[in-house]
């Protein structure tokens, strides 16, 4: 994982639909690769993961601190 070039998107504190829209924009721009999205609400966590899976990316969620999540998008 550490050898991969991971693009990190910080979507913490942003209202809907910005976290999902930022993730989608990054996935479209990259085509494939590794993108980590940081969010701080359960809604944003679900939305980003769902949008990624809809676009054919793999999404795994890790809770980094109480209520803060890192969603790892890989394709």
């Amino acid at each position: 994982m550490s050898t991969m070039n991971v693009k990190v998107i910080d979507a913490r504190g942003l209202s809907c639909p910005q976290p999902a829209a930022m993730a989608k924009q990054a996935m479209t721009g990259a085509g494939a690769g590794a993108i980590d999205v940081l969010v701080d609400s359960a809604t944003a966590r679900e939305n980003v993961a769902r949008i990624a899976r809809l676009a054919g990316w793999e999404a795994t969620v890790a809770e980094e601190a109480a209520g803060e999540y890192r969603i790892c998008l890989r394709k």
Binding site: P17, A20, A21, N47
Partner: peptide, 19 residues
Amino acid sequence: SRLCTVGAVRDMIMLRDPH
């Protein structure tokens, strides 16, 4: 459910997400 009567339309148009 996070149901939102505005988000429903917005996500469909903007993100093609029918959730």
